[in-house]
């Protein structure tokens, strides 16, 4: 694809954030898009946002658990960028109308104390680079109509990122069972999902390694202080204004997100 085409596709997605009207899948209009094209479309948007004053605060891995891969019909993981304006405070209202078709996912977030430069990052190096973990709820969203995403469209659309709510109970890596800790997801008091933390590629650490090595091939470094969301433990669930969602993790506490109408 030409640069002009990639820029046009990026503009289409950026406009959807503003209008909050989803667009048709990019692959319908640009059938020749490759994975590399899709990541470039994502990067054009991120560069544009950074030029406008946004700051990169980390990355997310998407589609890394069987539950999510089944739900979205996409069989491989991808990654996106987390910008500072995507972070919402626990228990503070999140205006649902800022999003197009939001869904939530329970995740165990990593906070890095050392940078990770792939390719070639091992599990040992990744574990040594983690400062602490936090309970998290990721808010995913799609600028593509009705979540009709394949791998190309979700990558181009910043891996269907929306926002993130971090909990307030940091834990050391050595104090959490990253593989077999249980997780429950409740929406308005109803149990809507359960899982084990290892649902994410066998361990969220594997996801962190995958991310470091995948972005590394594109010259991107995971920075100290950054947040990494490794992927959802359960299938995602839709949310709307009025909903309250809580994810609880064995040994790691819980995190709650509250969705409201727009407040002035």
């Amino acid at each position: 694809m030409t640069d002009a085409t990639l820029t046009e596709a990026a503009d289409t997605l950026l406009a959807a954030y503003d209008t909050r009207v989803p667009v048709e899948p990019l692959v319908d209009k640009y059938p020749g898009l490759t994975l590399a094209d899709a990541y470039e479309i994502q990067l054009v948007q991120i560069r544009r946002r950074v030029e406008a004053g946004a700051r990169i605060k980390g990355h997310k891995v998407g589609l890394s658990s069987p539950a999510m891969q089944r739900q979205m019909g996409v069989g491989q993981p991808d990654y996106g960028h987390l910008l500072d304006d995507m972070f919402w405070l626990e228990n503070a209202p999140v205006p649902a109308s800022r999003f197009l078709q939001p869904r939530v996912e329970p995740e165990i977030a990593f906070v890095l104390k050392k940078s990770l430069t792939g390719p070639g990052v091992t599990v040992a190096e990744a574990a040594a680079a983690v400062d602490f973990v936090l309970p998290a709820l990721e808010l995913i969203d799609s600028r593509i109509r009705d979540w009709r995403i394949g791998i190309i469209d979700t990558i181009a659309d910043n891996a269907s990122s929306g926002g993130v709510v971090l909990g307030s109970t940091p834990a050391r890596l050595t104090d959490v069972d990253l593989r077999l800790a249980g997780c429950t997801l409740h929406r308005n008091g109803d149990l809507v999902g359960t899982g084990a933390s290892g649902a994410v590629l066998g361990s969220p650490l594997t996801s962190l390694v995958w991310l470091a090595n995948t972005v590394g091939t594109r010259g991107v470094v995971l920075e100290a202080g950054h947040v990494v969301l490794p992927g959802s433990i359960t299938a995602s669930v839709p949310v709307a204004a009025g909903d309250t969602v809580t994810a609880a993790y064995a040994g790691l506490g819980s995190v709650t997100a509250r969705f409201t109408e727009e407040t002035s």
């Binding site: 359960t194 084990a196 064995a250």
Partner: peptide, 17 residues
């Protein structure tokens, strides 16, 4: 919150509590 992780031929297939 007692969890199980199900693997088929070494690959994660499902999980629950």
């Amino acid at each position: 919150i007692e969890a199980c992780l199900v693997e088929v031929d070494g690959q994660v297939a499902d999980s629950a509590t």
